[in-house]
Amino acid sequence: MNEIIGYIFIVAGVVFDFFGCLGLVRFPDLYNRLQAATKCVTIGTCGIMFGVFIITGLSPSGIKALLIILFLILTAPTAAHALARGAHKSGVKLWEKSICDKYEEDAD
């Protein structure tokens, strides 16, 4: 039973990871790509890790999987934030069809 639930989590995680990578290819500019990369890849990888935890239980690899989820949730948004801010400061433009850029207006 545990194995079935674990595999469901792993398959869902792989599907989300796939959408995240597809977003990296399809989205037009850096900021939109970061959106896909942070959200889908974070939850996808967390899903895979949680599936591993359910299958293996309280074993060395299960505990490691849980710790990986914790580190990933803490670090992935921070890295995305640093990338977005650095890109904007060094002059990477938003997609030309973007609605507004309040950050650019307030930069002076």
């Binding site: 037009p28 507004c100 307030d106």
Partner: peptide, 10 residues
């Protein structure tokens, strides 16, 4: 159609 409508808000 890639329905996105992006921008930076405050």
């Amino acid at each position: 159609d890639l329905p996105i409508n992006p921008g930076i808000v405050k």
